[in-house]
Design a protein around this nucleic acid. Sequence first.
DNA 1: CTACAGGTATAACCAACGACGATAGCCACT
DNA 2: AGTGGCTATCGTCGTTGGTTATACCTGTAG
Lengths: 286, 286
Amino acid sequence: MNYERLFAFTAFADPMNFTRAARQLHISQPALHVQVRKLAEEVGRPLYRRSGKSLVLTAEGKALAAFGREVQDRGRSVLEEVRGQSSTGPVTVASGEGAFLYLLGPAIRRFPKERWPLRLLTASGPETVEAIRESRAHLGVVGAAGAPQDLAATPLRTIGQKVLLPPGHRLARRRKLRPADLSADRLVVAPAGRPHRAMLDQLFRSAGCALQVAVEASGWELMIHFARLGVGIAVVNDFCPVPRGMVGVRLMGAPDVTYYLVERDGIAGPGVKAMRQLIVDTVRAG
Amino acid sequence: MNYERLFAFTAFADPMNFTRAARQLHISQPALHVQVRKLAEEVGRPLYRRSGKSLVLTAEGKALAAFGREVQDRGRSVLEEVRGQSSTGPVTVASGEGAFLYLLGPAIRRFPKERWPLRLLTASGPETVEAIRESRAHLGVVGAAGAPQDLAATPLRTIGQKVLLPPGHRLARRRKLRPADLSADRLVVAPAGRPHRAMLDQLFRSAGCALQVAVEASGWELMIHFARLGVGIAVVNDFCPVPRGMVGVRLMGAPDVTYYLVERDGIAGPGVKAMRQLIVDTVRAG
DNA sequence: CTACAGGTATAACCAACGACGATAGCCACT
DNA sequence: AGTGGCTATCGTCGTTGGTTATACCTGTAG
């Protein structure tokens, strides 16, 4: 296998667009196209396929792109080590949902970004796992139903749910609440299909009471915002800070969701190791 | 970094000889030499150095050669996976001393060699560790003072020492022996410098008695052979079978030596995983 | 339906890299 | 001093990969 072609292909696989990838590589579009075609011939399988207007990678293409990224990443780090330079390769962290906002803040703040540039990749849970598996990110943080066999996953923190209420609300003085207590209220919830919404639906159904939707909002920030405006009361992860002028009450019966740090097993550079340690320490401490 | 040059260099790094390596690669010696020179220029460090007649790798050269081997190994396996062929890359096991003879026999016998060719690399303890670190072998088995930080080591079995005696010997009926019991006898031992010999020297010194050498032999097989010939009595690892017509008596006071399976952390192919499991199972069982 | 926009794929041409044979240099051994 | 085995460099030539020009596809807008 010709590795220059492999790297050309990985460069293409990121934007899935020959023209833009070629610009990135400072070569012409035909040159890049030929490289990829020859790689596919070498491998003996198509690496991508048309889907209407755009192109999508085949399974083989994904595997090769992942391998290429991995080799380049390791290669840069080996080269820096050999040259005696301190490692300087960027560290990429992917994360779903609110983890960036509420879990990873301290780690990101304290990470020495002048030594290793930090790249953040915001994605949903499955997308995060995919980014790790395809070597597009070094570390990922996902909640609950995340990590499969081939990725190393270390539990970070287990988190419950709480209800955000205005101070004058009839339930605001309670120490804890159950789903049945909320059946009279209209709630601010995530849109259908999102895992948090699915969890709530399931919770109310098994408690035998109806969930009344005030408004659907995507993202914790937005949900909290609507709750502050008095549109409805919100059920959010325990890691969300209770905004000024509201009260938070523990919601019982909701399944605790565990956040995991996922990573590819393999040889991590010093920057990745540092970030890994920082995330584990700060999240477990906080 | 140009990877074709890197692979040319790894091919050279194995025999440390341009002429032979070039023949192996089916290119001319000057062609290979230029590749390596250009790689060194690219990296900015010398990759090897003359030492009298022969050439030796610098630290940088070793690191690059290790990386190159690793990439080629993974690359082959990825390619086979992508092509849908079952993995067929050879599995290399390195081991020191008697482990091949007495510990790994069952694993080697039961390993499906028709699926994955098996390559065995006989080496001393430190050489085994070096072979793993330089990606020249996938798995290694070493006794005791083996595995440092950067390699994953799993304990396999802890083994004591025993004394091989002719049946008529005055100590042959004893259940166990101490170094002092042997001070009147002449022993078959490993040559000076070998770890087993160092261990015995240390043992007798701390017991305050002298060790009398009958003959020095390298290798368990040879030591046992001389013991059978009646040249002297031998102290050997517990895993050596007691030969027909002799008796083995446990030697107390000798430090138990633990055998470890060492490997590079990283992504192992299916063949390596199978061998790993086989070694762990058979050695722990036996 | 036609024209257009954005991107993919192929062709013809040219520069650069890499392989080769020849050969000089180095080192150990006889 | 001479020889064998190997490393290192040079000039030459073919293959590979890059470039521009251009045809082709697919969805969108007039």
